[in-house]
Amino acid sequence: METATDIVLLALLAATAVGLVRIRNLFAVVMLAGIYSLLSAGLFTVLDAVDVAFTEAAVGAGISTVLFLGALALVGHREKKPTRTGRMQVLPLAVVLITGAALVYGTMDLPPFGDAANPVHHRVADHYLEETYHEIGVPNVVTAVLASYRGYDTMGETTVVFAAAVGVMLLLGGGARRRRGGAAPASESESE
C-alpha cells in the first residue's frame, strides 16, 4: 500500500514537473508549482516525514504561492516565447543530462531504499531515537533534534529568514520608482 501510494505520487510529481517546463502562463505555472508542493507534501507523509509535510504544504503551497502571485502582479504573468528555440536548449539539456547521469550513477551504490540496516540510520540517528526521551523528555524526536540537538542549525535558519526580510526591505523598502536611463540612475531615497 505504502509503495503503491509512493509510486503514484512520484508519477504525478513527474507529470507536474513536465507541465511546469511546458506551460508559459506564469499564473498557471505558479499554481502548478503549488500543486507540486502539495504532492511532495503527500510524498513526505508517506515517507514518515509528517513535520516536513506540514511545513512543505504551508510554505511551498501556501506562503510561496502567495509571494509568487504578489510578485506576478508587479511583473506581469506571461513568459515570452523563447526566441532561439533550437539552439538555446542544447547546452542546458547537456548540463542536466550529465548531472542527472552522475546522480543516477551515484545512487547505484546507495543502500537499498527503506532498509533499516542502512548506515544512514545509525551512528547518530539511533542515538536520537533512543536517548531523546531521557535527555530531553519530548516525544516528537524531530522537535527535539530541531530545537535542541541541532538547535544551532535552527537558529541559523531563523537568521536566514531574517536575512531574507532584511534583503527584501533593502530592495523594496524605497518605494516604487521606476529607474530609467543610463549607467547610474538616481536612487530612491534622493526623493526623500
Partner: peptide, 11 residues
C-alpha cells in the same frame, strides 16, 4: 531517512 514499515519519529 525512510525505513520500510517504520512510522513517523514521534515516540
Amino acid at each position: 531517512g525512510k525505513i520500510t514499515g517504520g512510522t513517523a519519529p514521534i515516540l
